[in-house]
């Protein structure tokens, strides 16, 4: 066999033109942008975020103030979306109540992912005894009914925005721990992880800089969907009267106005629609991310 000079007339050229260095993240964003429903979700969510951030300044009505007769229909008595069973302005409730939903959703999802990813990453990476102990712990949390556990935590620590968010985080991290563990088990067997160890990477680097970034796509999708679930959870707790008593929230509006559903449909339905649209937009974004990260789904 003769020694062939490498390169030049290398038959083995894939991308010959100096292609722009497209990072996997940028590729995913390009895919995401082409997905109509995902972009619609992003627009809806952005609208709600904007309303929550600047709405209270543009519409400076206190959601706890009584502005007119109870249960006035939308458009009458000066209230755009009507009033609730105490005569409070529903528009003001919608504008101000989103803060609780979105804040609790984001804090709870962040906490869920932090606990879940840490537990799952350590269990999946180290295996053995570490894995057994952490998975037993996960099982303990998994068998407890989430709503009851959250209600218990909120009751013990008195309901505030933070205690509600933390309680939701504590009851919902188990599935992200399992997902992270499964991804770590899969990825740590791949050759590039062995290669990283062989070039002198320490465990910390292997976990956080090599395996975790490659496990991110499903985790980002899961974090997105977790935010939606946490918003629903918060609404559920507020609906049951376990929300922060000093803050107006969509779930609380639904719960309070529920008995008057037949006489004044708008009072409970309008905050319900707000919750629905927010959670739907987040799911659409989650699905869009999932497709953008998963090339095989794209071709369908």
């Amino acid at each position: 066999m003769s020694l062939i000079a490498p390169d030049l007339n290398d038959a083995d050229k894939a991308v010959d033109m100096p292609a722009p260095a497209a990072s996997p993240a940028r590729d995913a964003w390009r895919m995401f942008r082409r997905n109509g429903s995902a972009v619609a979700g992003l627009v809806i969510l952005a609208a709600f975020l904007l309303m929550t951030l600047i709405g209270p300044k543009l519409y400076p009505v206190d959601p706890f103030d009584i502005v007119s007769a109870p249960l006035s229909p939308p458009g009458e008595e000066g209230a755009l979306l009507g009033t609730d069973y105490l005569g409070r302005d529903i528009t003001a409730g919608i504008v101000n109540g989103g803060k609780v939903s979105l804040a609790v959703g984001l804090i709870a999802a962040a906490l869920t992912m932090t606990i879940g990813v840490t537990v799952g990453a350590l269990a999946g990476f180290y295996g053995g005894m570490v894995d057994r102990v952490l998975m037993r712990l996960t099982e303990v949390f998994q068998v407890m009914p989430p709503l009851l556990l959250a209600m218990a935590i909120v009751t013990i620590f008195s309901p505030t925005l933070w205690s509600v968010a933390v309680s939701i985080g504590i009851v919902s991290w188990t599935s992200s721990a399992r997902l992270t563990r499964a991804e770590f088990l899969r990825i740590k067997g791949l050759e590039y992880v062995k290669a990283a160890r062989s070039i002198g990477a320490r465990n910390r680097r292997l976990i956080w800089r090599v395996v975790l970034p490659n496990a991110l796509p499903p985790l980002i999708v899961s974090a997105t969907l977790t935010t939606g679930v946490a918003i629903l959870f918060e609404s559920g707790l507020s609906f049951l009267g376990l929300g922060d008593p000093n803050l107006m929230s969509w779930g609380r509006m639904m719960g309070g106005n529920r008995p008057y559903m037949l006489d004044a449909w708008w009072a409970a339905t309008i905050p319900g629609v707000a919750i629905f649209l927010t959670v739907l937009s987040i799911s659409l974004i989650g699905d869009g991310l999932n497709e953008a990260f998963n090339p095989r789904l794209r071709e369908r």
């Binding site: 590039y192 990283a196 490659n214």
Partner: peptide, 24 residues
């Protein structure tokens, strides 16, 4: 062990899974 590793290195079988897809 980590310091000794510079003296022995490995070329892996699968060129598709032996390079971290997120690293230039």
């Amino acid at each position: 062990l980590r310091r000794a590793r510079r003296r022995f290195q490995m070329i892996f079988q699968d060129p598709y899974s032996s390079l971290n897809p997120r690293t230039r």
